[in-house]
Every structure is written in structure tokens, then in C-alpha cells.
Simulated scan of single mutants.
Amino acid sequence: MEPLFMTPVFHHKIWGGSKLQSQFGFKIPDDQTGEAWIISGHSHGPTAVANGRFKGQTLAELWQTHKELFNNEAGAVFPLLIKILDAKTDLSIQVHPDDAYAAEHEHELGKTECWYILQADPGAKLYYGHQATTRDELKTMIEAQDWSHLLRQIPVKAGEFYYVPSGTIHALGQGILALETQQSSDSTYRVYDFDRLDKKTGQKRALHLKQAIDVTRVPHVDPVLDIATTSEPGLTKTHLLSSPYFDVEKWRCTGSTTQRRQADYQLFTVIDGNGTLTVDGHDYPLEKGASFVIPYDVDQLALTGSMVLITSWPNQTQAK
């Protein structure tokens, strides 16, 4: 019985920066590193186990060959993907498909996601939702590039949480560092990319206007979040989201606490501070940026220290 610590996989992005190194100590490949995939079974960047008997094996491999670690869960792929994103400049305005559209057109899961804002520069903003009232109006405004009337912009600060269901037009804005919990999918339809040129190709990145118009929810409706906080000795839990695909919580550890695993398996990332994880009598040091999976054969875990973690687990009705 042991936790599965993950080795992150990094992705160069036109909008990326260097905060994944300066804020988390990651050894990034260049100063345009936009994404650290920190717990992933996706084929575009599966993370490998860094410790124990499965060291060197990827999460994707374990999902196929050791299903007992996940209570023999069904499903072709590990269902969740956890990232940290560094938006040195604005991401493209984009939208993701739901499961049905993605299965038909992309042959993978849809992409519902959420963001916990780790850091935001003064004046930082999100692009979130749109102002169109009908699909025809949406199409007209996109084709006219009437972004000032179409797009909603929202000021953002550290500690905020946003739920981004599939079909939501969105983008992280310049100066935001965020932890993203999402379905394990890499299907993104770009609506607008600020006419930027890729330094490597000298060309504008492709847009996907037909697909974007097909999948965008019209009209946009902000989801209602039921955020609730509970406290016990050594630990404060803030339940951020219950979605059809995953639950997300923030844990603030201020001493020592012992907890039961909350689902068949549970994902954790330390976003601040440091401490110790104890499983089956063995201690594992935790530092900012550490990410691990508590598998099915681990019934309980102990945390000691002063730290904040984001944890998530698959929605059980979807996972089975």
C-alpha cells in the first residue's frame, strides 16, 4: 500500500512563461512553458510514477494493467487530468465539446474543467461566457469578429474558483497561474487567437469556428456553485464542486490529521506550504507542487504540516 507520486509532463505554449519554475521549482524546458500536466493518463502526456514498486510506469499503463488500484474501474482511459497553467499572455478564446460531440468527432472524452486561481497579477481577467442570445447571433458575431460585444471579461484574484462546463467559451487571461481539474481530453476549439503568429512557424494558429459554433451553449448561463467549508482539528476542507464528472476540494492542513480515502481513488496536489504524508506507517515528504494519487488499496492517509492541497476524485456514477 503506497501513494503514487507523479512526475510532471511539460508543454510549450505560445502564451506560456516561466512561473512553473519560479513558483513550483519545476525544471521546465523553456521560458514559454504553459502547462505542467501533473496527474495524467492522456496519450498526449501521461505522467510516470516516481516512487515505489510501480516507479517508471505511466498512469496510463497502470490504468490498463493494474485496475485493482482503481477498484477495477471501467473505462478505456483514466478519466481525470490535472494541470497547472501559466498564462504569461492571454490564452486563445476557446470552447470544448461535450462527451457526445467529442466521441463522434475527436474519438475521446469531452472536456469539462474547472480552475482554482493560484496567482493573479493586478488587473488580471478571465474570458468567461458570451453575450449572444441565439446560435445565429453567436455565428454572426464570431464571423464579424465582434469580440468586444460577444465576450464577457471577469476580473480575477487568487483563491477564486471557476467551473467551466463543456460548451463554455473561455480563456485564462494574462498574468494568471491556475490549477485545472478536467476530464482527460485534449479537444480544444479555438474561436479567436488575437492574430498572434507562432514563432516557430511564422503562421497564425488554426481556428475551429464551425466546431466552436456547433458546441457552444447558447445562451450562456453561469453555473451556481455550492461552496461549503467544514473544519476539524488540523484540517479545514472547502468543497468547491460536485460535477457530473468529478468532485473538487481544497484542504488546508494546520497540524496533523488522519483522513479516509473519499472515493475509489483520490488525487492530490500541494499548492502551498510543506509537510508530510504518512501511508501504512511510511512517511513521504510533501513540498509545493507535489502531486500524488491515493489508490484503492490505501484506506487512509495522515497529513502533518502547514500546507494547502487541492484534491479531486471521479464522480462515482460516471466512473462505473
Rank of each mutant, 00 (worst) to 15 (best):
Y296T: 12
I294K: 00
G202L: 03
G275I: 02
E106V: 05
V218M: 11
H42C: 00
E108D: 11
K250D: 08
T58P: 11
L309G: 07
G159P: 09
Y163C: 00
C253T: 02
K67Q: 14
V95G: 09
I39P: 05
P122V: 08
F24K: 09
A36W: 00
D226I: 14
G234D: 06
C114I: 04
M141N: 09
Q131N: 14
D247C: 15
L179Q: 01
Q262N: 10
V164F: 06
S40R: 04
Q183Y: 03
E104G: 13
Q262G: 01
H42V: 00
L85F: 00
R53K: 13
M6V: 03
V9A: 02
T58I: 00
D86N: 10
G110Y: 00
Q203I: 14
N315L: 02
L138K: 05
H66M: 05
G305I: 02
Q318A: 15
D226T: 15
L126E: 12
V221K: 02
A76S: 10
T258K: 15
L80F: 12
G75H: 10
L197D: 07
G34K: 01
A228F: 14
R217N: 14
T188G: 14
D214G: 10
L81A: 12
C253N: 05
A103C: 11
A302Q: 10
D146R: 09
H208S: 00
D214H: 07
I271H: 07
A228E: 15
F246V: 10
E106N: 07
G123C: 01
E61F: 08
W147K: 02
L277P: 03
I38W: 01
R261G: 11
G56L: 06
T254W: 11
G16D: 09
A206V: 15
A74E: 12
L59N: 02
N274R: 13
A319W: 01
P165H: 04
A60M: 13
I227Y: 14
T89Y: 08
L4C: 08
W115V: 00
K200L: 08
D195Q: 07
T238K: 00
G255E: 13
G234L: 04
G52F: 10
K19H: 08
Q259C: 13
K200E: 14
G281C: 11
P165Q: 12
L126M: 15
F10Q: 11
D195N: 08
V164R: 03
T181S: 03
Y245R: 05
L4N: 03
S92R: 06
T257G: 11
R135G: 11
T140I: 13
H239D: 12
N72M: 03
R152E: 15
L179R: 10
G202H: 14
G16K: 01
Y128S: 09
G25R: 06
L81T: 01
H96G: 04
G167E: 05
H220S: 13
Q145F: 03
F70P: 00
V77L: 12
V221F: 12
L118F: 02
T188N: 07
K88W: 02
P295Y: 10
Y296G: 15
D98L: 10
H11K: 15
F70R: 01
I176F: 09
Y127K: 12
E180C: 00
F292G: 11
A76H: 07
G45T: 10
Y284F: 15
L277H: 06
G56A: 04
L197A: 09
G305T: 02
G25L: 14
R261F: 03
H105Y: 13
H130C: 08
I142C: 04
L209I: 14
